[in-house]
């Protein structure tokens, strides 16, 4: 087995196993820590594919920033008690969710068997990327030339989201303070 294959199976098994832990465990902190490992495994798979920048950003943004905040909140709230108790749900609901999962699984199997699993190479196949000086350079160049406008609009969108959430949080606090 080539080293890529070994590492692919390692990261793939890790990703699937910890995704299951994330979904099945009731303790939110356990779920969050497992999710970090899932993101890390994804980053490993991206790195195997040669997309080092995507792998690094995956770790920086998802594993490094978003999950840290999430775990921070879980730890501050000390939300150890399970919030979604499966025992109390009606059996029809359980049957429905199981059926939904089975349908989705069947759909994925069908899609992977019949769909175009290996899509056509786009504008930048690996050779071209290497010629133009690596994916980091290329992505940065494109981001600041061709895609500058969408990039800036996205940042404005995120800023609007932050302002919105702060406003909502502040308003609740003021209401509670008055009452």
């Amino acid at each position: 087995m080539s080293p890529e294959a070994i590492f692919f199976y390692l990261f793939a098994v890790m990703a699937v196993a910890f995704s299951l832990v994330t979904v099945l465990k009731r303790n939110p902190a356990v779920g969050a820590f497992s999710l970090v490992l899932v993101f890390f495994s994804f980053a490993g798979i991206y790195a195997i594919l040669g997309a080092h920048l995507v792998a690094a950003l995956q770790v920086v943004v998802y594993a490094g920033a978003i999950m840290v905040l999430l775990i921070f909140v879980i730890m501050l709230l000390n939300a150890d008690s399970p919030s979604l108790d499966m025992d109390r749900t009606h059996w029809t609901l359980r049957a429905l969710s199981l059926a939904g999962c089975a349908t989705l699984f069947a759909f994925f199997v069908w899609a992977f068997q019949n769909g175009s699993l290996f899509p056509q190479p786009g504008q930048f196949p690996p050779q071209r990327v290497a010629e133009l000086g690596g994916s980091t350079k290329l992505i940065s160049y494109l981001m600041f030339t061709e895609y500058l406008y969408p990039f800036e609009v996205t940042s404005a969108l995120i800023l609007a989201g932050i302002v919105g959430s702060v406003t909502l949080a502040k308003r609740q606090k003021v209401k509670r303070g008055k009452a």
């Binding site: 080092h52 920048l53 792998a55 690094a56 950003l57 770790v59 920086v60 490094g64 690596g134 980091t136």
Partner: peptide, 11 residues
Amino acid sequence: LDVGILFTLAI
């Protein structure tokens, strides 16, 4: 690595 210092920041 192609990403160099970004790798360090990530880890």
